[in-house]
């Protein structure tokens, strides 16, 4: 108690010496500068192998041209691929070890470009994108049932070189893969220099919310990939087919929302307030010093 009173007495004395509140104002100012300095975040780059970002573009999407130069305007995310070992029939080794993914949208349509190395072009080469449908979580392996969580279906966009177009499909459990009555997805692949470039496109939203994934700009949704090397072996079998394929588990996908400049207004307000605060403090300090 005595210590507290002594501190208080000293503070009262210091108030008298330096003029009212000014040491505290100065202290707050210096402290805030120090604190603000320590809060500057370390740089972080979120694009690596965690999510695919579909940039918002003006003008036509390169939805039917996997080689269009417009694709170079957006960075690629790269995801490793595993042999499908989750359920029989398994495969221990796959041709495609990783896939590069780019995406663009124009507010109405979305286009997703897969790019991967495959030493041979074969009629049965194929690739697929997988999304969850609705609010329920779905297992990445064809939305198979989960013991303690009620899962939902998956929407699969499938492309095969032979047809060079897409199939819009659904699954909820093994053996339940079904081609939709209403086909909304388009796809086109181009093979060049040992690399497949396959572009999938669809409207961001469709009326069939029960079967189609809905892409709302700004929201993160899940995406997974599957790739088949359809090379014919000497035995006559295909190297990869059906469940024997290269897969990924879920990653994130987001279509960029329209630009939001509100943060800049807040910044302008904050800078104005900080400058005003400084001005008032210094004026008060100056007055105190001359009085």
């Amino acid at each position: 108690m005595a210590v507290f009173q002594a501190v208080r007495a000293n503070q009262e004395e210091s108030m008298r010496t330096l003029g009212q509140v000014k040491p505290w104002c100065a202290g707050i100012l210096v402290g805030t500068v120090l604190a603000a300095g320590s809060l500057v975040p370390s740089s972080g780059f979120a694009q690596e192998s965690v999510s695919v970002r579909a940039a918002l573009v003006k003008g036509a999407l390169p939805a039917d041209d996997p080689s269009a130069s417009a694709w170079n305007s957006t960075p690629a995310s790269e995801f490793p691929m595993s042999p499908q070992v989750h359920w029989p029939n398994r495969i221990q080794e796959v041709t495609v070890k990783s896939v590069k993914v780019r995406a663009l949208h124009d507010g109405q349509q979305i286009a997703v470009l897969l790019e991967y190395e495959d030493p041979s072009q074969d009629p049965d080469d194929a690739a697929g994108l997988e999304f969850m449908v609705g609010d329920k979580k779905a297992h990445f392996a064809h939305g198979q049932p989960m013991a303690q969580v009620q899962g939902g279906p998956v929407n699969i966009w499938y492309w095969k070189n032979k047809d060079n177009n897409a199939l819009d499909m659904n699954a909820q459990g093994f053996g339940s893969l079904k081609v939709q009555d209403q086909q909304d997805v388009k796809a086109k692949g181009v093979y060049q220099n040992g690399t497949w470039k396959v572009v999938f496109s669809r409207a961001l939203s469709t009326p069939d919310v029960e079967h189609d994934t809905q892409i709302k700009p700004g929201d993160f949704i899940n995406i997974a990939f599957a790739i088949w090397d359809g090379k014919k072996l000497e035995s006559g079998d295909l190297k990869e087919k059906g469940s024997q394929k290269a897969v990924s588990s879920w990653w994130y996908f987001r279509a960029d929302p329209p630009p939001d400049y509100s943060a800049y207004y807040y910044v302008a307000l904050a800078v104005g307030l900080a400058a005003g605060f400084q001005f008032v403090i210094i004026r008060k300090l100056k007055k105190g010093a001359t009085s």
Partner: peptide, 8 residues
């Protein structure tokens, strides 16, 4: 100081 506040 205002720049840091703005950045924050």
């Amino acid at each position: 100081f205002p720049v840091l506040v703005g950045w924050q």
